[in-house]
Write a protein that binds this DNA or RNA. Structure first.
Lengths: 199, 199
DNA sequence: TAACAAGTTGACCGCTCGGTCCGTTTATCG
DNA sequence: CGATAAACGGACCGAGCGGTCAACTTGTTA
């Protein structure tokens, strides 16, 4: 792996500008936001975008990678927390908070371009599995819930609130709380379907 | 409102073919499915599609309208059921079952084109509110849950399972069960955010 | 400061999409 | 039948997209 020459000063500034603008634009208009709009918002030319990221998917992947790694770090820190149940809930809250705005859905849709993303995602999924295992052992969540269940449900609060026009940006917390109550052992009913294979 | 002339025989057949093909195509490829592909699948010309529906959104709206009315009818029937809690759960199961395949998200994204869709949706929302009110009065669900909460959460099971590649088509039932457990009174924790205004 | 490589830019390309249009086909009915 | 209007179909159009390129600008370095 050759590190080649260091980036020129204006190039690193433009790269940062570009990533910030792209994140904003994706947050507002979804993944369909056009590269031209992103470039305009960043105050740079369209060609420059493609010099930094050979394809639009690579740009998306770069942003997604950031998010995944940040969330993964939070998860690993919470792995050493005292209260395993609270740790899981806190992780889910961090996930919801990070994805406040429009979805970047880091599960499948995008990012399969870069293998780094797949790798980071796999790593984060393992962290979540560990978090869930601990919570289950501590009796904080019901026995029939797997890590994959939590991974899937993780995105739901932001999804359901994305349909509410003038909602509070924290509304997702309400649905996280409801769903988390569904994960608790108290008053749990047997589930009609087995859990899916790990992702 | 003039009913004008009755439709020609081949026209009604093509219309049915078109609607079926469109539903299939949307189910497979999402709302981005192209009109050309739909026409090819239906075995008719692209121009014919636009003769039946002046715009792609109108085609979507027609399908969505069907679904909403079917689901609304189920809801109204369940309104007279004995067990109010079971009725709500059954309604949610019907909703999930109908939307098995890819989402047609009849909440916001599409269908605002036709005022009929808005009207049918409003009507169905009222039915859901009534269903939820009854379930709450019977103590089948917790007191702090509103009809709007249920409307939002209704879509979640299908959404979360849409990310699982080779999953069973019934996997959504697992997540409906989990979420519904979160709506039950037993072991409920207070919610951090107030419910959103009615849609 | 001179010279070069790295970076920037916007016109441009090919493609796909939703939607239009008009020549052709066909169901309908006196 | 034969006439007529309704329905059909696919070539066509303009807009917008992701991505390319060659001329131009600028940070860097000896």
């Amino acid at each position: 792996m050759t590190t080649s020459r260091p980036l020129r000063a204006d190039a690193v500034r433009n790269r940062a500008l570009l990533l910030a603008a792209a994140a904003d634009e994706f947050a507002e208009h979804g993944l369909d936001a056009s590269v031209a709009d992103i470039a305009r918002r960043a105050g740079i030319g369209k060609g420059t975008v493609f010099r930094h990221f050979p394809t639009k998917d690579d740009l998306i992947a770069a942003i997604v990678l950031d998010r995944i790694e940040a969330l993964g770090a939070i998860g690993e820190r919470l792995l050493h927390s005292e209260d395993a149940g609270a740790a899981l809930l806190e992780f889910l809250a961090a996930a919801g908070d990070q994805r406040r705005q429009r979805d970047l859905s880091f599960l499948q849709e995008a990012g399969d371009a870069l293998p780094e993303v797949v790798q980071a995602r796999t790593r984060m999924f393992q962290t979540i599995n560990a978090l869930v295992d601990r919570a289950r052992e501590h009796g904080a969540i019901r026995r029939d819930i797997t890590g994959t269940d939590v991974i899937l449900l993780m995105c739901a609060p932001n999804y359901v609130t994305s349909y509410v026009p003038g909602a509070s940006p924290d509304l997702w917390q309400r649905y996280l709380a409801i769903i988390f109550d569904g994960l608790r052992p108290e008053g749990a009913h047997t589930l009609p379907q087995p859990p899916p294979d790990a992702l």
